[in-house]
Every structure is written in C-alpha cells, then in structure tokens.
Design a binder for these strands. Structure first.
Lengths: 242, 242
DNA sequence: CCGTATTTGTCCGTATGTATG
DNA sequence: ACATACATACGGACAAATACG
C-alpha cells in the first residue's frame, strides 16, 4: 500500500530558472521507485511480465500511475515495453553486461579526468578516509563491510567530476548491471587488489594528474569486466565439462 | 492530425525470446516522434510549456497519449517534467552543452577503440568513400553537402563499435546537443581541418590501432567542444564590448 | 480459420495541487 | 492570508489488439 508522502511545505518560490525542488512526489514516481527496488532485489525476476491490472490491485491505485511508472522504468533500462503486450523485466545476457562494462569504464575514465582537474582538499581527505576504512575491511576479509564503502568511494569519484549529466548517467548504467548480477561485483579474494587500485587512483587524483587518473579509473572498471569474463569462462568450462 | 498507421499484418509469431517486432505504433509513440521533430526543429522553442490540453486538441487525441509521449521525451532529455506543473522544453545553457561534449567525447573514444579492434574491410571501404566525398565538398566549400556526410561518417563509426548500448546512447546525447545549437557543429572554415581529422581516424582504424583510434576520435569531438568554447568566448567578448 | 478471453490502449470526468490576484 | 483560476494527477470505463482454444 502506497501512501502519498505529504512533504514539509516549502515557501512558495517563483518558478523561473533551473528549479529542481520536488514539491510532492506523484504516486507514479512512488510506484516507480517501489518497482525499481523489487526488480533490482530480484523480487520480480528477469523476463517477468508486469501485469498492469495486477500491479494496480497490489498497490491499490488505478492503472494510470502504473503505466507511467513503467514508462519511467523503461527509461532506466530496467524493463522493456512492447506495444500491446506490456512491460517485461529486461533479461540481460553476458554480452550486454560486457557492453555496459565498456561504457561504464569510458564514463569512469572521464570522471577521473574531470575529478583530478578540479579536486578539492576536502574531497581528497574524504576519499583517503574511505580507502583507509576499506583497508581495514580487507585485513579482516569482511566483504559485507567492504562493499558499501566501495560503492561510496565510486560514487564520490563520479560526483567529484561535477558533470551533472555524467553523475546522472552512471547510476543508470549501474542499475542495469545490477540486473545482470545482483551479487557484488567484487569477489572476496579480490578485495585487496581492488583497494590497491583505489590507492593508485587516489594518488593520481591527489597529484591532479588528469590523464593518469582517467586511465586508472578506466582500468579499474575494466578489471571488473575481466573478472566477470573469467567467471563466465569458468562457468562455461564447468557446464561443458559435465 | 495523426493517423494510426495500420501496418502490414505480420504472420502471428509466438512471443518468446528477444522479439523486437513492432506490430502497430501506438498513438503515444507517433505523438512523441512528432513532438520530437517540433522541438529539434525549433518549432517549439526552448523553455516553452507543453500544455496537455492544447496538444490534446491540436493532435485530436485525448490527454493520455500526450502524457505518455511527454514521459518518453523526458527520457530523451528533450523536455523536463515538473510534478503538477507539466512539461517544459529543456533549456540548455553553455555549461550543460560542454558537459555533454565531454561525455560524447568519451563515448566516441570507446567507439573508436571497439571499431578498430573489429573493423571489416567493407566498413573501411565505406568510411574511405565518405572521407573522399567529404574531401570534394571541402574543395568547393559546400557545407550543405559536407554536413550530412559528416553525420553519416560519425554514425558509421559508432555503429561499427557493435556495442548496442553505445549505439543507442550516442544519439540521445546528440539530440540534446541539437537542443543547444541546431546549427551545424561544423563551421565553414573548419571543414578542411575536420576532414583531416577524419583521415587520421580512418588511418588508425584501418591499422586496427585501437588505442590510437580511440584517442583520435575523442580528440575529434573535443576539438568540436573547443570550437564551441571559442565561439562562446567570442560572443561573450562582443556582448561585453558594446 | 474463427470465436473468446485477456491485456493493453484510449478516453473523459473528477480531485488535487500550485500560482496568482 | 484567503479565495479563485488553471494545469496536472488520478480513477474508472470503453475500445482495440493479441493470444489461445
């Protein structure tokens, strides 16, 4: 059951310019977020059909908001809408995931260049702190602690680019990748290697070496792609071996 | 007046797998394409408010399809939707355009790497032919002939990457850039320099030098960004000079 | 090949939220 | 601060398209 969140009323503001205040969430946007969570968590599996009537009943709203939410999810690339057939949770195969990795790597490379060219001392301190924290989790081999720190580190790297379009684009790619593998993109044994790469990135960023930071961040993502490839080859081998 | 195109009826096909047949366009998708054209051509100006009721009357459909079309346009980044206020044609300032150029450059860099690593002789021939054709238009200083060839060349470069996500993403960025400047991104005097860059790209691609092709394609786009920057500085100077 | 069931697509009336006088 | 006007958001019913028997 979705309830409309009545947000704290903001002072009336004249409406010109680059206004970004969200006064009241629409039901459609709430449903969209809800569905997004259900898809990424796997509660709704890949290939599943999103029945408008069923969702309408489940969330106790009419089909209008459901439809709009689906259009939004299509935008995020989480579902695929076929005319007169409805919405289906997107099935991502390995090829697609690898394609996305390449794009993600290119975008992170750009983020690295931009970040290094305009990084502030505060940002460097925050990034350093995260690397230090991760180092601790590496020592205790605590992947559950490592994972969120890793995510935050990457998020900060991208945000530091101060390129709004890039900052919006990267999470879109990430969500689609989560569709392929919800499990962490980092494997237990690779935590140390991963954080060593973080250290190198941090060093390049601190030195304001844009080219180096870009290259290292790109490689960092491509290393993840390489690990995925290795795992796929492994599965392939295991499957054909039986 | 929009009419529903009743397409040739296809044989009934069972619906599993990666089906991509579009049986009948929905009214919403027709409206979306129509509006997209009107926005890019400038018929609907930047910042304009898209009134649902007015559009509904203009296209002689109800407001439902209009709403869906707007959601789709928001996805393309051509309009901005504010809850309870409606859809506004996005106003793109110089900063945003420059941000998009950086992303475009990174994506073209990726396209270059991928293309060079898997280019076919046929593709090389087609690209060569285009460069030759453009050379002719450069000699006669015919920008109207140069422009579409240039677009086709760039399109082929991206398609050659064979990365579907990339192939979908680049036009999205391009459309948004058109929002900023509908006029060509190539200036008359720069056609020769631009085509020299094309030749260098073609050489690197032909040599299957992925790193070089990627770098050159990235630089090619960044050169365009540089020209935009120069023009902006020029306008700025002229404006403050009066 | 045709009739039926199901699902999406469309329409319009009403409620809610926002800006303005 | 309040009332009014206007646009969007939502709900529910009908029409069209598709899949299945």
């Amino acid at each position: 059951m979705i309830e409309r969140k009545q947000e704290v009323r903001l002072r009336p503001v004249s409406f010109g310019g680059a206004m970004r205040i969200r006064r009241s969430e629409t039901i459609a946007s709430l449903i969209q977020r809800e569905l997004e969570g259900m898809i990424i968590s796997g509660e709704i599996g890949a290939g599943d059909h999103l029945n408008e009537a069923a969702l309408s009943e489940r969330f106790e709203v009419s089909r209008g908001p459901i439809r709009e939410a689906c259009r939004g999810l299509e935008r995020s690339g989480l579902i695929r809408i076929v005319a007169n057939h409805g919405a289906f949770v997107r099935e991502m195969n390995a090829e697609e995931a690898l394609e996305l990795y390449d794009i993600r790597a290119a975008l992170f490379g750009l983020a690295g260049k931009l970040l290094a060219s305009r990084v502030s001392p505060l940002e460097i301190r925050r990034l350093s702190a995260l690397v230090e924290e991760m180092e601790g989790t590496v020592d205790t081999d605590d992947i559950n602690a490592f994972y969120p720190l890793n995510v935050e580190f990457h998020t900060l790297l991208v945000k530091g680019s101060e390129n709004e379009h890039l900052i919006n684009l990267v999470p879109t790619i990430d969500k689609q990748l989560h569709l392929f593998r919800r499990r962490g993109l980092v494997q237990p044994g690779k935590m140390r290697a991963s954080n060593e790469e973080h250290k190198a990135i941090l060093a390049a960023v601190s030195a304001r070496d844009a080219a180096q930071a870009g290259a290292l961040m790109e490689q960092h993502i491509l290393a993840g792609k390489g690990r995925l490839l290795a795992r796929l080859a492994e599965q392939q081998g295991a499957a054909s071996g039986t």
